[in-house]
Amino acid sequence: MADFANQLAGILDEVCGTHDHSMSRNRPYSGQPHTVTGERGSTEIRGITFRDLRDCFLRAFVQSHSVYRDGTIEPLQPNHALSNEASKGERACICEGDIYALKGDFDPIAVVQNLCCEVEKLMRIYPNVPRLRAEKGVSK
């Protein structure tokens, strides 16, 4: 029974992403194809400066915060206004001091995912996934 429990714990760690993983640059891209750990993540970053990356991070960080008060559709300020501004991409006007005014918690994994999307947008490759193809015999 203990062996089964250990196996189950290992599977849950792997599925939930809590298992230690190597950060070696030589590791395989073994995630789902549309994720940064899959095929999408193997795209080299080109044409991005460190300042661009900083701007992408600021927008991603803002977009990883809640924009509504818990359990309502009432905008949570300044999060709502900053998120609307961040959605303008490279035309946004956000300074690093703005992020200290954000209210509530954020999801660190959402920051990573949003950062990758912001970089793809600057590279003009967003959403970096293969085009969908219609197949015969598949209903809508």
Rank of each mutant, 00 (worst) to 15 (best):
S139W: 09
M123C: 01
E96R: 12
F106W: 06
A101T: 08
S42V: 03
N84H: 12
Y29D: 11
K140F: 09
I109G: 03
P75D: 08
V112H: 00
K140L: 10
L115S: 02
G89I: 06
G10K: 03
R59L: 11
C95A: 09
C95H: 06
N84M: 14
V119Y: 02
V119H: 01
D98H: 04
F106Q: 02
D105N: 12
G10W: 04
C93S: 15
V15G: 02
L115Q: 00
E74N: 12
P127G: 03
V67Y: 14
R124G: 09
R133W: 04
G137W: 02
P75M: 14
D107I: 10
L82I: 13
L58G: 07
V129G: 01
V138R: 06
A81W: 02
G10F: 01
F50M: 14
R40D: 00
R59D: 11
C116G: 00
Q63V: 09
N6M: 09
L53G: 12
E14R: 11
S42W: 01
V119F: 04
V36E: 07
T43R: 12
I99F: 08
V138T: 00
P75L: 11
Y126D: 06
G31R: 03
V112L: 01
R40V: 00
R59G: 11
S83F: 13
H65G: 05
A110E: 04
S64M: 10
C95E: 10
N79I: 04
D70A: 12
V36H: 08
A134Q: 06
L76I: 13
L58A: 03
G31N: 07
P108H: 03
K88Y: 05
G38R: 02
A60E: 05
R124I: 10
S139R: 05
I99Y: 08
Y68K: 12
Q32H: 07
R59A: 07
E44A: 14
L58E: 07
L8Q: 13
A101I: 00
S87T: 13
E135C: 00
S66H: 10
C93D: 15
M1F: 14
R51G: 14
V111E: 01
L122M: 12
R59N: 09
I109Y: 05
Q77G: 12
A5G: 09
A110L: 02
V15F: 10
I109A: 04
N6S: 13
G97A: 15
G104F: 04
M23H: 15
D55K: 06
G137H: 02
R46M: 14
G47R: 09
Q32Y: 11
T72Y: 05
S22N: 09
M1S: 15
L8K: 10
R124D: 13
L82Q: 09
C116K: 00
R59F: 06
T18R: 11
I11T: 08
I94V: 06
A86V: 10
V15W: 06
V111C: 05
S30E: 12
G17I: 00
D107A: 05
L82F: 14
M123K: 08
D55R: 13
